[in-house]
Amino acid sequence: MLEATNELGNVALQAGGTLTDANAAAALAVGLAALGAGYAERGIGSAAVGAMAEDDDLFVNGLILTVLPETIVILALVVVFIV
């Protein structure tokens, strides 16, 4: 992870101090979106497991709600195809 950031930093520096390489920027966009989705799923997931522990019927609802933030990553992936 750290090395990857270093690489990214080098790329950015070589390109003149800003992130001008479109591919690298797209990768960063997807990565950050995935991080955001992961953080959102952390809270929803633990709440869903809590609700399921009380009532088994909530399994389907819990599953759906847990993976909803995944759409952010899918939308971010669109960026990869555009650049």
Binding site: A47, V49, G50, D55
Partner: peptide, 14 residues
Amino acid sequence: SNPEYVVARVRARR
């Protein structure tokens, strides 16, 4: 702290 989990369970019990 893990308020999400506890709150979900407690709401069901409520």
